[in-house]
Nucleic acid binder design. Sequence first.
DNA 1: AATGAATGAGACTTCATTCAT
DNA 2: TATGAATGAAGTCTCATTCAT
Lengths: 202, 202, 202, 202
Amino acid sequence: MEVSDPMNTEKQGGRRDAIIEAAYSCMARGGYDRTSTAQICAAAGVSSGTFFHYFPTKADVLVAILESGIVHTRDVFARIRATAAQDAQGALDLWCEHVLQEASDDDLAGFDSVLGAVPDHPGVAAALKAERALVRDDLTELVALGQAQATMRTDLTAARIAIWLGILADGLLGHAVQEGSTGIDELRSEFVDIVGQLVRGT
Amino acid sequence: MEVSDPMNTEKQGGRRDAIIEAAYSCMARGGYDRTSTAQICAAAGVSSGTFFHYFPTKADVLVAILESGIVHTRDVFARIRATAAQDAQGALDLWCEHVLQEASDDDLAGFDSVLGAVPDHPGVAAALKAERALVRDDLTELVALGQAQATMRTDLTAARIAIWLGILADGLLGHAVQEGSTGIDELRSEFVDIVGQLVRGT
Amino acid sequence: MEVSDPMNTEKQGGRRDAIIEAAYSCMARGGYDRTSTAQICAAAGVSSGTFFHYFPTKADVLVAILESGIVHTRDVFARIRATAAQDAQGALDLWCEHVLQEASDDDLAGFDSVLGAVPDHPGVAAALKAERALVRDDLTELVALGQAQATMRTDLTAARIAIWLGILADGLLGHAVQEGSTGIDELRSEFVDIVGQLVRGT
Amino acid sequence: MEVSDPMNTEKQGGRRDAIIEAAYSCMARGGYDRTSTAQICAAAGVSSGTFFHYFPTKADVLVAILESGIVHTRDVFARIRATAAQDAQGALDLWCEHVLQEASDDDLAGFDSVLGAVPDHPGVAAALKAERALVRDDLTELVALGQAQATMRTDLTAARIAIWLGILADGLLGHAVQEGSTGIDELRSEFVDIVGQLVRGT
DNA sequence: AATGAATGAGACTTCATTCAT
DNA sequence: TATGAATGAAGTCTCATTCAT
């Protein structure tokens, strides 16, 4: 079987990715606890045996999801940072765009909103911490560049401004979950304005 | 038992409140699903039979918690609204104070962060919706007064500004959970400033 | 139901004892690992919920079985000790009788033979150790009395003789398992003779 | 791989022996059920595929272990029998030595103690029976020679004496497991004495 | 009103075994 | 011959909920 598809998407470790993907969208809806491994298996088209072949524990899929999120975040910031050196304000606009896209993604916003209830597990805690540190540090660096370029306020430290940017982004994500991703478009320009106001201090 | 204490704090429905209180603090730590009715019973000093005597379902305690939150929110806004008629900006400061207090309350912030993963239950959904509508409407009214008093921007509708205030407050609550309630004090004056900036549009 | 039986054997904690009894006879046949909690529940006429209401863990039933064995052993030795003060040799005959009865009990012998494969569990290890210590100490005391009464050899310490008595008893129990409890009767008088020979050193 | 070593110890069925050896020592510690095929594979440095290539079933490794034990027992008795024709008592001393050596071997004693809990499998049952018959018959023959040489008691049949020798040996093995193989040395001379006493009936 | 024993569906996980490569 | 991904039955245990007392 499967002989006729030379680029079979399910080939070469595809099972593992399918499980991660299935777990991600299941948990985005119901949260970690309300998502059973059986649901994940069904969604991924995989037997329970296969599930535990790749992930010794249900918590380990969560870790895998979080880690792939970190990788993605790193990519995004790599692109943003490329702009920031010359135009921190422009880079910030890119970040706003990125946040708005995340807020428009039902799965992503749902998954995020659910991270408040997560198992006690060292790997999970570590991944969550790493993701947050990554965002915080990259935003801090971005703001520091803006301050150096004299386009951002200096009455607050870059680190502090970065914290408020994070708070705003998290709040927006939460809003998206409650109202549905539609409606984010209406907030688009306001978000950019408010972020601009925040970093300029005007 | 308990017959000789006419002012017993545990009498007259005290059991019910004890259960609500216990469930609240348990769920604030572990979330709804990771909190078993047995844990709640132990924390409340009550048998499982008593638990289900007062609440036919675990979800019903959650509803009760949310409803008591609504009552509390109504109280808070009643006080705020008393000021708003003459000094909307001052009322907004009161609201900021209220939000900062919530963020400093570990249980409250924890409980809030956990509401992303909640059972499918009409009562729960209704209570969550009601709480949000309450805050949104009261804030909208407050901002509208500010606009009438010419102390708040009018390039955005009052409803829209209220939404952003909610986003900011939610984001702050989320931050409090991740960093621990300490550290909120440092953000106190910045929060007031940013809110002020937001409503004035400066 | 059950209204007509004033001395209902299943009343007053009978469930717990029924589970212990059922587990005992199941494990006597298949051993600990090959006995599932479901089998035990079925044999005890109890639901899985009830099982785990009384025993948090499957290993805990094993502990309970072992502990009830210790209680029984203590009883037996109490009776034997009553004789030993005046007639150690007669007491030893009582012990032989006791061992032969155990060997004739299919369940007991089977259960015993299966204790080589037991879960890693502190309670289990402790109970096994306690049982062995009990038998060893009581036998040692018995032999010491025999030495004082000049009816038992003194070229070996009482403790050492007790060890050999234990080895002989264990070996006999093992034999009973392999051959079936029938056939023990044929060994009865030989066992008494050999034990006598052993303690006298003749 | 392994192509260049003509005397490679792992070649030519070395895999099969490695699996048997690994299974033996794993089971000696945990027993049959608590030893997974995965553990055996890991200990043998072999994949699960290879495992099931050589042994269709986990029970079949156990059979192989038991059969190799039979072969070994046959060797031992071959040596003992060589002596018995002229000196049954000396041969019995050799057997004592053999038993004591087994008791000093942690793996062997552990494995033996675990045979009480064994899968329902005709091959296993047959092998166990064969091993026991072998020992019983050889011991019976030995004792019969001793009786003919007038160095052993005749008030009991040779078969009966053989049974008691087996009981004593099994008991000693069990004792070794409980106390650890150290401590066997202290029992060495006593064992020889007691066995001597037993067969002479003195 | 209060208790806690009883229930059984369902969760996570293990493991012997198969089979395509 | 060797591999290890895949399978699914079965096992232990959790938990919301009921009900007789």
